[in-house]
Measured scan of single mutants.
Amino acid sequence: RYTFRTRGPEQMKRVVEWARRQNLSYRVEVHGDEYIIHAE
């Protein structure tokens, strides 16, 4: 189980790509310009 905090969509997309390659399920929360990605 991982939690990532990123700023801006570019970093968020990179984390999502990584999670997909690992076959993890993930969800993204948006708080202003901060993205929180939960993957497991």
Rank of each mutant, 00 (worst) to 15 (best):
residue 1 R to F: 10
residue 1 R to V: 12
residue 1 R to Y: 12
residue 1 R to L: 08
residue 1 R to T: 10
residue 1 R to M: 09
residue 1 R to E: 09
residue 1 R to N: 07
residue 1 R to Q: 10
residue 2 Y to H: 08
residue 2 Y to N: 03
residue 2 Y to R: 05
residue 2 Y to T: 04
residue 2 Y to A: 03
residue 2 Y to Q: 04
residue 3 T to N: 03
residue 3 T to Q: 08
residue 3 T to L: 10
residue 3 T to H: 11
residue 3 T to M: 10
residue 3 T to S: 06
residue 3 T to R: 07
residue 3 T to A: 04
residue 3 T to Y: 10
residue 3 T to P: 02
residue 4 F to G: 01
residue 4 F to D: 01
residue 4 F to Q: 00
residue 4 F to W: 12
residue 5 R to F: 11
residue 5 R to Y: 14
residue 5 R to G: 02
residue 5 R to W: 09
residue 5 R to M: 07
residue 5 R to I: 14
residue 5 R to N: 05
residue 6 T to P: 04
residue 6 T to Q: 02
residue 6 T to E: 03
residue 6 T to S: 04
residue 6 T to N: 01
residue 6 T to D: 00
residue 6 T to A: 14
residue 6 T to M: 07
residue 7 R to E: 06
residue 7 R to T: 11
residue 8 G to T: 14
residue 8 G to H: 15
residue 8 G to D: 15
residue 8 G to S: 15
residue 8 G to P: 00
residue 8 G to V: 15
residue 8 G to M: 13
residue 8 G to R: 14
residue 9 P to T: 13
residue 9 P to W: 15
residue 9 P to K: 14
residue 9 P to Y: 15
residue 9 P to A: 13
residue 9 P to G: 08
residue 9 P to H: 13
residue 10 E to P: 15
residue 10 E to K: 10
residue 10 E to Q: 08
residue 10 E to F: 05
residue 10 E to T: 08
residue 10 E to W: 06
residue 11 Q to F: 07
residue 11 Q to K: 07
residue 11 Q to L: 09
residue 11 Q to I: 11
residue 11 Q to T: 09
residue 12 M to E: 00
residue 12 M to H: 02
residue 12 M to W: 05
residue 12 M to V: 08
residue 13 K to V: 06
residue 13 K to H: 11
residue 13 K to N: 09
residue 13 K to S: 08
residue 13 K to G: 07
residue 13 K to A: 13
residue 13 K to D: 05
residue 14 R to H: 05
residue 14 R to F: 08
residue 14 R to I: 13
residue 14 R to M: 11
residue 14 R to P: 01
residue 14 R to A: 12
residue 14 R to S: 07
residue 14 R to D: 05
residue 15 V to E: 00
residue 15 V to L: 10
residue 15 V to M: 05
residue 15 V to K: 02
residue 15 V to G: 00
residue 16 V to R: 02
residue 16 V to S: 01
residue 16 V to T: 06
residue 17 E to S: 06
residue 17 E to W: 06
residue 17 E to L: 07
residue 17 E to Q: 08
residue 17 E to K: 06
residue 17 E to H: 05
residue 17 E to T: 04
residue 17 E to A: 10
residue 18 W to V: 01
residue 18 W to G: 01
residue 19 A to P: 00
residue 19 A to Q: 00
residue 19 A to T: 03
residue 19 A to M: 12
residue 19 A to Y: 04
residue 19 A to R: 00
residue 19 A to G: 00
residue 20 R to I: 15
residue 20 R to K: 14
residue 20 R to Y: 05
residue 20 R to E: 13
residue 20 R to N: 08
residue 20 R to M: 12
residue 21 R to G: 10
residue 21 R to V: 08
residue 21 R to K: 12
residue 21 R to W: 06
residue 21 R to Y: 07
residue 21 R to H: 09
residue 22 Q to S: 08
residue 22 Q to M: 15
residue 22 Q to E: 09
residue 23 N to D: 06
residue 23 N to V: 03
residue 23 N to P: 01
residue 23 N to S: 08
residue 23 N to F: 08
residue 23 N to K: 10
residue 23 N to I: 02
residue 23 N to L: 06
residue 24 L to S: 00
residue 24 L to Y: 10
residue 24 L to V: 04
residue 24 L to N: 00
residue 24 L to Q: 01
residue 25 S to P: 05
residue 25 S to T: 11
residue 25 S to I: 13
residue 25 S to M: 11
residue 25 S to L: 11
residue 25 S to Y: 12
residue 26 Y to T: 08
residue 26 Y to R: 00
residue 26 Y to F: 12
residue 26 Y to G: 00
residue 27 R to H: 11
residue 27 R to T: 14
residue 27 R to D: 05
residue 27 R to V: 13
residue 27 R to Q: 10
residue 27 R to A: 06
residue 27 R to F: 12
residue 28 V to A: 01
residue 29 E to W: 07
residue 29 E to L: 07
residue 29 E to V: 09
residue 29 E to H: 06
residue 29 E to R: 04
residue 29 E to M: 07
residue 29 E to P: 01
residue 29 E to Q: 07
residue 30 V to D: 04
residue 30 V to W: 07
residue 30 V to L: 10
residue 30 V to P: 05
residue 30 V to S: 06
residue 30 V to F: 09
residue 31 H to T: 08
residue 31 H to I: 14
residue 31 H to G: 03
residue 31 H to K: 11
residue 31 H to A: 10
residue 32 G to I: 04
residue 32 G to P: 03
residue 32 G to L: 05
residue 32 G to T: 03
residue 32 G to S: 04
residue 33 D to N: 10
residue 33 D to Y: 05
residue 33 D to G: 09
residue 33 D to K: 08
residue 33 D to P: 05
residue 33 D to L: 10
residue 33 D to F: 07
residue 33 D to H: 07
residue 33 D to V: 07
residue 33 D to S: 10
residue 34 E to T: 12
residue 34 E to R: 05
residue 34 E to F: 14
residue 34 E to Q: 09
residue 34 E to N: 07
residue 34 E to I: 14
residue 35 Y to I: 07
residue 35 Y to T: 04
residue 35 Y to K: 02
residue 35 Y to W: 09
residue 35 Y to C: 09
residue 35 Y to F: 11
residue 35 Y to A: 05
residue 35 Y to M: 05
residue 35 Y to E: 00
residue 36 I to N: 01
residue 36 I to T: 05
residue 36 I to A: 02
residue 36 I to G: 01
residue 36 I to Q: 02
residue 36 I to R: 03
residue 37 I to F: 05
residue 37 I to H: 00
residue 37 I to P: 00
residue 37 I to S: 00
residue 37 I to G: 00
residue 38 H to Q: 06
residue 38 H to T: 14
residue 38 H to D: 03
residue 38 H to A: 03
residue 39 A to R: 01
residue 39 A to G: 02
residue 39 A to T: 14
residue 39 A to Y: 10
residue 39 A to L: 15
residue 39 A to F: 15
residue 39 A to D: 00
residue 40 E to D: 09
residue 40 E to W: 15
residue 40 E to G: 13
residue 40 E to N: 09
residue 40 E to I: 11
